[in-house]
C-alpha cells in the first residue's frame, strides 16, 4: 500500500495541538494557528479535520467537565498519538527531501 502523506491543514493542526500541550482544545488550536502563522480556519473545517485525524488514529481526545460559561457542556482536550507523531515526521522528511537543492532557486538560504 502506498504511503499517504498529511495535508497541510492536517499538519498545521497536529503541530498546533503538540505546541499547546495540555491546553489543546478546539478554540485554542484556532487561536494558535491564527497567531503563529496567520491561518484563519473555519470552525467547520477545524472540527471536520480533527474528526478525520481521529479516524486515522493520529489524535485522541479526553473530555473535561463543563463550566458555567459553556452552559455545563464538556470541553474536548486533544493530544497527538504516537502514530500521529510518526506521520508528522514522515511528512516533514518527504518535504525536506523534495526541497533539497531547490533552496537557492527559490530564494531560500539553506538547502
Amino acid at each position: 500500500m502506498p504511503k499517504s502523506y498529511l495535508g497541510d491543514l492536517e499538519q498545521m493542526i497536529l503541530l498546533a495541538v503538540m505546541r499547546l500541550g495540555d491546553e489543546a482544545f478546539a478554540l485554542a488550536v484556532l487561536r494558535e494557528l491564527d497567531r503563529e502563522v496567520g491561518r484563519k480556519v473555519s470552525r467547520g473545517s477545524l472540527y471536520k479535520t480533527l474528526e478525520r485525524l481521529r479516524e486515522k488514529g493520529l489524535v485522541t481526545w479526553r473530555t473535561e467537565d463543563g463550566t458555567p460559561e459553556r452552559g455545563g457542556r464538556p470541553r474536548r482536550m486533544f493530544s497527538v498519538t504516537p502514530p500521529g507523531i510518526m506521520a508528522l515526521t514522515e511528512s516533514r522528511e518527504a518535504l525536506l527531501t523534495l526541497w533539497h537543492g531547490l533552496a537557492t532557486a527559490l530564494g531560500g538560504e539553506r538547502g
Partner: peptide, 20 residues
C-alpha cells in the same frame, strides 16, 4: 447537526464559550 455524545456537546460548548 453535530454528532450525539460528548464530542458533539463539546462543539456546542465551544460555541457558547465564544459567544460569552
Amino acid at each position: 447537526s453535530v454528532p450525539r455524545g460528548r464530542a458533539g456537546q463539546s462543539v456546542v460548548g465551544d460555541a457558547r464559550e465564544e459567544f460569552q
